[in-house]
Design a protein around this nucleic acid. Sequence first.
DNA 1: AATACTTTTTGCCAAATGGCAAATGATTCC
DNA 2: GGAATCATTTGCCATTTGGCAAAAAGTATT
Lengths: 189, 189
Amino acid sequence: MKELFEFMLRFGNLNQQQMDFISSKAVKMQLPNNAYFSEAGKIARQVGFVVEGIVRVCYYSNKGEEVTKYFIEENNLVVDLESFDLEICSSAYVQAVTDCTLIVFSKKDWQELLQTIVGFETMVNKIISRALMQKVERRSPLVTEDATTRYLKFLEIYPTVVNRIPLSYIASYLGVTQSSLSRIRKNIR
Amino acid sequence: MKELFEFMLRFGNLNQQQMDFISSKAVKMQLPNNAYFSEAGKIARQVGFVVEGIVRVCYYSNKGEEVTKYFIEENNLVVDLESFDLEICSSAYVQAVTDCTLIVFSKKDWQELLQTIVGFETMVNKIISRALMQKVERRSPLVTEDATTRYLKFLEIYPTVVNRIPLSYIASYLGVTQSSLSRIRKNIR
DNA sequence: AATACTTTTTGCCAAATGGCAAATGATTCC
DNA sequence: GGAATCATTTGCCATTTGGCAAAAAGTATT
């Protein structure tokens, strides 16, 4: 739990009693490599916090190619926002790409936290806005650049990820084939 | 002002007194084609609402190419969030790509609205989250697809924009050269 | 250690896109 | 109406990337 509170306190204040209340609702959970945290066609019913490991959000195009929208590293919230908030079916999969340790909250408990803890909603909004802004910032540059530049940007953005996950996931994030990415890697060294 | 309140009321409630207060802070503003609403290297000091026209957010790559991050159409808020919130220099330009009519609020007035109107902050957070989510949703698919597919997606996403702005802006949004986009267009018909 | 399995690299060729420059088309201004 | 300016299209060729299949390298299993 230490990591979770360190994370949250960057976005607002919590006293001991509030943290105890949050702790009482938190459930620690192991998510093995390749397992899904939430799935397309289902409604997301949990908020998670990645303590250890890497998660990705991906979907499948009409041609059946898998597309990785982004990765979520340690010390970040993971939640399929649209699905969770609006209770509509998701169009994306949230999947562990390494063995992961998460702290999760059910929707019911999360709403209780939002209603009970003064300032919690504001704090959560800040966290979410920041995460969304980050996604926009990370995605936008990728459209314009050639594949090599995109890969170099990926290395900057996710420095801790490269050597922990398969090449194919990175390729599907960058919008390149695995073969091309392999060649690009070779040319960079 | 009617459009602004119609827009806001989709995200929460406002009574007449609150709307009058908002109106008292609002300034109507004409932004001619090509003019900047905010600029890279400066701090964004206004929140705007697009009543009429189209605005884009763009920046310049290290090779001097201009990159359009996204367009903002009628009936949306326009604000360089990171710069406005954190008072740091922006890295992007917000530019009118048609003659525009905006309603703007100074930072000082906007903060007064946030502090005075109960529920205004929550409402604004909803608006912003939705806009950010939309940006992520719109950008992500563009990375993976080929240029023709990207153009077709652009048409879906921004159906009202195509014939109102120069080809070169669309090209810079899609990450294609103007020439390629011109050829793509030809092949589609 | 040998086998099966997965991931990454490579070769070959086709298709898509870029770069540059010229031609055409549209619009504005006198 | 004609000149000047700006936006779009097109031709030509170089470069990048994709598609497919096979080889090589790396991992796990027995």
